[in-house]
Computed example of a mutant assay.
Amino acid sequence: MDIVERRVDVGSSVGGQQGARHDSYSVILFQSSITNAFVNDFVSSPDQLLDAVLRYDADGGTNFTVAVQQAQSVMEQHWSTEWSPVMIFLSDGECHIADQTVQDLCHSAVRLGKALSFHAVSFGPDGSSTSLRRMTQIALGIQNNAPRDPLAPAAATAASSYTQALDTIQLAETFLGIAESLRKPRGSLIH
């Protein structure tokens, strides 16, 4: 299970370089404890990022609370007004989390200046996804009621979402769909 935090560039390129990657990635792996696979990575290629994650094994236990609290800490520590925070929360869904923990995460992003785009992806049975669905409802409610970023067009916001992906094909399609929803607004924002 893991959290992928992506901060999406909503403005200028770094150093004026065209075609350079401008997004920052953090991956927090969680079970009963957490591991930061990488934090605020601007330079690794997608293959390098995948290789870094594949070094870890999952061996049971799930604690959504410590995972979300760590994601909030990473987000706050590396906050920049140039980025829009996007979080992908991937799990089998078999854990409970208090609404307040998710509210704190989302309100923190709003307080810092931009609403969080939260995407829960369940790879477990539908009956185990209640917490993931609730997390998405909370995030979407806060996102929809947050002040709009005056520097970004309204279409530049990817709405928080919940998806169930029971096989690798569905999982790949889910990630491609999220990526596409993030790519559309970037095309209108980056030269």
Results as ranks from 00 to 15, higher is better:
69 Q>N: 15
56 Y>N: 14
46 P>A: 02
49 L>R: 15
56 Y>G: 10
58 A>H: 11
41 D>Y: 02
51 D>I: 13
56 Y>H: 14
43 V>A: 15
56 Y>K: 11
64 F>V: 03
58 A>G: 12
48 Q>M: 09
73 S>Q: 14
61 G>H: 06
36 N>I: 15
39 V>R: 02
35 T>L: 07
59 D>F: 07
41 D>P: 05
53 V>F: 08
69 Q>A: 12
41 D>V: 04
69 Q>G: 09
43 V>E: 12
67 A>T: 05
73 S>H: 11
55 R>G: 13
37 A>N: 04
37 A>T: 01
60 G>K: 07
70 Q>Y: 06
39 V>I: 15
52 A>S: 14
38 F>V: 07
39 V>E: 06
51 D>Q: 11
63 N>F: 05
73 S>I: 00
67 A>K: 01
51 D>T: 15
34 I>Q: 07
41 D>T: 02
75 M>T: 12
73 S>R: 13
68 V>R: 01
35 T>A: 10
72 Q>I: 02
58 A>C: 07
71 A>R: 03
51 D>F: 09
44 S>P: 04
75 M>S: 08
62 T>K: 02
67 A>C: 04
47 D>N: 12
36 N>H: 09
61 G>D: 02
50 L>H: 14
46 P>V: 03
47 D>G: 13
45 S>T: 12
34 I>F: 04
41 D>M: 05
53 V>N: 10
45 S>Y: 05
39 V>W: 01
37 A>K: 06
46 P>S: 08
46 P>F: 03
40 N>S: 11
58 A>D: 14
68 V>Q: 02
39 V>C: 03
65 T>G: 09
68 V>T: 09
45 S>E: 02
66 V>W: 06
47 D>A: 12
59 D>G: 07
53 V>T: 12
43 V>D: 13
41 D>Q: 05
42 F>I: 00
46 P>C: 06
50 L>P: 11
46 P>I: 06
72 Q>R: 14
72 Q>M: 09
60 G>F: 01
39 V>T: 15
67 A>R: 00
71 A>G: 15
69 Q>L: 10
50 L>C: 13
44 S>D: 11
63 N>T: 11
67 A>G: 04
47 D>L: 06
51 D>R: 09
71 A>V: 03
42 F>W: 12
35 T>K: 08
51 D>M: 08
59 D>I: 10
53 V>L: 12
51 D>G: 12
40 N>L: 04
48 Q>S: 11
75 M>N: 05
51 D>K: 09
58 A>E: 12
62 T>S: 08
34 I>L: 06
61 G>N: 07
51 D>S: 12
73 S>F: 01
69 Q>V: 09
46 P>M: 04
65 T>P: 06
61 G>W: 04
37 A>G: 04
72 Q>A: 09
45 S>I: 00
63 N>S: 15
58 A>T: 11
66 V>L: 13
61 G>R: 07
64 F>W: 00
45 S>R: 01
66 V>S: 15
57 D>S: 14
35 T>C: 07
49 L>E: 04
73 S>K: 13
73 S>Y: 08
68 V>Y: 03
54 L>N: 15
52 A>L: 07
52 A>V: 10
42 F>L: 14
49 L>M: 14
74 V>Q: 13
70 Q>L: 11
50 L>D: 14
37 A>F: 00
62 T>R: 01
55 R>D: 12
42 F>T: 08
75 M>Q: 07
63 N>D: 15
41 D>F: 04
68 V>F: 05
35 T>N: 12
64 F>T: 02
